[in-house]
Design a protein around this nucleic acid. Sequence first.
DNA 1: GTGAAAGCGCTAACAA
DNA 2: TTGTTAGCGCTTTCAC
Lengths: 339, 339
Amino acid sequence: MIKRTKLKDIAEALNISVTTVSRAINSKSDISEETRKAVLAMADKLNYRPNALAISLRKSLFNVIGVILPSVDHYFFSTVLKGIMNKAHQANYLVMIGESMNDLEKENEILNQFMSHCVTGILISPSGRDSLSQVRPKRIPFVVVDRPLENEVDSVVKYDDLNGAFLAVDHLINQGYKNIACLKGNKDCIISATRLKGYKKALKLHGIESNANMIKSCTYPSKKDGYLMSKELLLATNKVDAFFTITDNLAAGVYEAAEELKLKIPTDLGVVGYSNSQISSSLTPKLTTIEQPGERMGEQAFDYLQQIIIGNNRLFKKTFDAQLIIRNSSAKNLPVYSA
Amino acid sequence: MIKRTKLKDIAEALNISVTTVSRAINSKSDISEETRKAVLAMADKLNYRPNALAISLRKSLFNVIGVILPSVDHYFFSTVLKGIMNKAHQANYLVMIGESMNDLEKENEILNQFMSHCVTGILISPSGRDSLSQVRPKRIPFVVVDRPLENEVDSVVKYDDLNGAFLAVDHLINQGYKNIACLKGNKDCIISATRLKGYKKALKLHGIESNANMIKSCTYPSKKDGYLMSKELLLATNKVDAFFTITDNLAAGVYEAAEELKLKIPTDLGVVGYSNSQISSSLTPKLTTIEQPGERMGEQAFDYLQQIIIGNNRLFKKTFDAQLIIRNSSAKNLPVYSA
DNA sequence: GTGAAAGCGCTAACAA
DNA sequence: TTGTTAGCGCTTTCAC
């Protein structure tokens, strides 16, 4: 922190009191137009910039919020962050950002640092089931984004993941695929678990029995994991004719395995991903997937947080409707989409 | 900001002075083991958390840095941010993040807010040529990342973009492509300009005259722009047999145009992108591109900033070497790569 | 319309 | 080893 002009400097230069300067800067009413102008001119001349730390300390409010996301280079989360920043900027809030990397301990560390630094509120995409039990006791305004723990006590902006997965798998079945495998993430991941439920729900609805052998998990879903898991399944049973993957990355891996095994998508193998990330429309054939409006979710989350900060003490909940984006990776018989 | 335990609360609970409590918390030497333990126990009991604002105000240092990037949902920048956060977290710094959206005015606004909030230093990827003339006068430690203005007065972590583009185009020529077009961004974008130079340098080296009609610009390079610009070029001259695009997104657009016009990549049309973003290996055929180690660049930038903050008053410069990643989009005759 | 004084939570110099 | 005092930069009573 470098030394800079403060109110006292302005006061001394003008031979008036600090109080008066403060009043002028904050455009209070009880001050003469004359002095006001003089102060402002001098402030400008000396390149005065208020010290937000001092102001915050004095006024007990700090217009900074903290955002905790699993990872910023994950496309979906980066759009959530963008949404948050859109609104935060408008509302004159600054945003601090921390990555939890799905690590509860690191998450808690960041949380504590944020608290120490007096953030006014927290926006968090929890890394695990116990995340929020770390947050709640701090008694700080917060809103959960995208990874809702099942409860009725927190404000949360989420996505209808159950239905998203359901739509994906239902679509595959309707297209004529019979043996649909599911590629998912960690057992502890709420999102993964919810999407798995949606998968099972769709199977059940169509009278298909879910088979544990058709479900594969990995720690941190990547293209490579998708490749390995799908290859294993394709070689093992030889009956899998479609994949539902809980993330587009995994689907990209399926494409790779399919090519290696000379299986044509979508005729031999149907694929539906999740998130509509950038790769989904770059794959050939283009990937059918589930849209996730990260930016809008981030914006909504900030709006709720702001409501809570200004004292609106109710619970805010919003679930974004699931939306299937049909492209060519699931067109068993006919290509249905080409844009 | 909610009310929380402060030193005074602990002091009163223990009937000792605030100073003593402070000493205990900060584990100074001149304090009895006994009181130290008592204080720590009470602090824990009352769930004490130091007020970083007050500490910073008092000590005139605030362990927060500000990061200004054009856009966080751009893959490359999100990895830069990740690199910065890796190191910042290790060094116990918090990071504030702002998006300039390539808008000088917005950039300046964020800058001022950061300054007001007493960030110790700034990491910035400048949005335009005049960005730094806004930063320099503030006399705050800063490091430029990835978008170096041509000067010798700032610390900067950059990438050898001239050579990156050169390698890309040189490679295309060596593969046997004759008429190589360049798809780029805005005229004001330094990065775009530098890569264009590399393109021209490679042409020149091979005795090919650069042709203004083979160079197309757009405002904010997207897949769609790539599609439109490449289609226009392919329809117009019918002689373009390869594209060098200053970003992978644009290359993805070229793929789309190629498919529409029934041109086979790489036989009819060679393509080389830039950035090695996620889509590059999802495209079919896989895209030859230029690797950009965003995370490592972010880490390096933070390290430099930290040096400057602790008073190491020299200029820090680092240029990451350009690296061509050869995949199949540029294999005019034989596929050369498949992983 | 203006200024003096107190205090936000904390630390550092100086006393005791 | 502990306490007293002053002050970081600012705002807010309360006098004048």
